[in-house]
Amino acid sequence: MTCWRAALWILLGLVLWPTNARADELRPAYIEMTEQTPGQWSLLWKASANSRLGRSGVIKIPDNCVIEGERQREFAGSNILTRLALQCNGSLQGQTIGLKGLALSSTDALVRIAPMDSAMQTLRLTPDQPSAILATPSVISNVAATYTILGIEHILLGFDHLFFVLALVLLLKGGWLVAKTVTAFTVAHSLTLIGTTLGWLSLPSQPVEAVIALSIVFLAVEVVKARPDDLRLSERFPWIVAFLFGLLHGFGFAGALAEIGLPEGDVPLALLTFNLGVEIGQLTIVAIALAILHGLRQFKLSWVRPTKTATAYGIGIIATYWFIERMLA
């Protein structure tokens, strides 16, 4: 196989990537049970209206609870909200809560149980484990583990953030330069993620998502036009470019975190561990990309440039589609 054939396969794979993926693809289902008065609970269930789970999923409530009154359903943006009033006999400890239909979906469900007389419990249901037994929670470990995993999943499944980091790695030469640039991106998106989540900053989501897509197009063009004897602005000052675009990506992260929700009373911990999860996912992308490029250099140095170019074209095509789609939304 020639280097150009290899590059063509990479380009084809990226072009056929699911282009309906959005910047913040992570939109898990969400269940919250809050005790209003002793034994009286309110239940909120949120799921995407476009998903099979939103259309046909059913909450499995604890066995010692019964539904009172009529369930209320409403649309909120792209989500379906279902509200129930429950009467529960005794403690929920040892009871099971679940989501029928989750096993047939590709998403997770975040569950929060907030009793009046004990600490809140945060759980995560998955297609492989669509139900869970409620136990005496270790709040710190529960919240920290759940939001760290959500952060990792967000960077790995939020394809435009992934593509931006990948484009940075393709553009730059040298592990130290990549490390400094990614650090600048990290600092910037952490600032806007924290500021937006705490209500200090605000920008409308649609133009932010459009400019995020445009930032990926910009980097893809820079990768294609890069020449060893003529350093472009993004190569001379990559940390400045990464920092400026990182501020915008932070608003994207904040939008995803707002959709997921934050546990009352544990906002700092959830925010910290979500951001930590994002960084773990980000470093994973960088390590894998650098390892692949290093392997190519060792195996066939002449393949490196065509591979970078083909990958950049694929990323740029998808990002351009996202930009147009978000501008017209």
Rank of each mutant, 00 (worst) to 15 (best):
L203S: 08
I67K: 14
W9D: 07
F159I: 15
G175L: 07
T148S: 14
I149E: 14
M116I: 15
I97L: 14
L214H: 08
L193F: 05
Y321P: 08
G250D: 04
Y321V: 11
V139G: 04
L272P: 01
I240H: 05
T320M: 11
N275E: 05
G250K: 03
F237K: 12
N275Y: 06
K46P: 01
A312C: 02
L134N: 04
L81W: 08
L92F: 05
L248N: 01
I240Q: 07
L171I: 00
L166G: 03
F163E: 01
C3R: 14
G246S: 10
P268W: 01
S118W: 04
A226H: 06
E222T: 07
L244R: 02
T186W: 07
N89H: 10
T34A: 15
K46T: 05
V208I: 12
R232T: 08
A226P: 00
G261Y: 06
M116K: 13
A103Y: 01
P28E: 05
W200Y: 12
F323R: 00
E235A: 12
C65A: 11
A167Q: 00
R83T: 12
M116N: 10
K173C: 03
K100V: 08
L244K: 01
L86Q: 00
L14E: 01
S138K: 14
F251D: 00
A179D: 11
R27N: 12
G314R: 07
Q40V: 13
A21D: 08
L84W: 14
G195E: 05
Q206W: 08
W239H: 13
S302H: 09
G90I: 08
E35T: 07
T126V: 06
L293R: 05
R236L: 14
P238N: 10
V224P: 00
G195W: 04
L257H: 11
N89G: 02
W41A: 00
G250S: 05
P263F: 03
T284V: 12
L296I: 15
K180I: 12
L198A: 10
F237N: 09
F251M: 03
F274C: 09
I288E: 02
M1V: 11
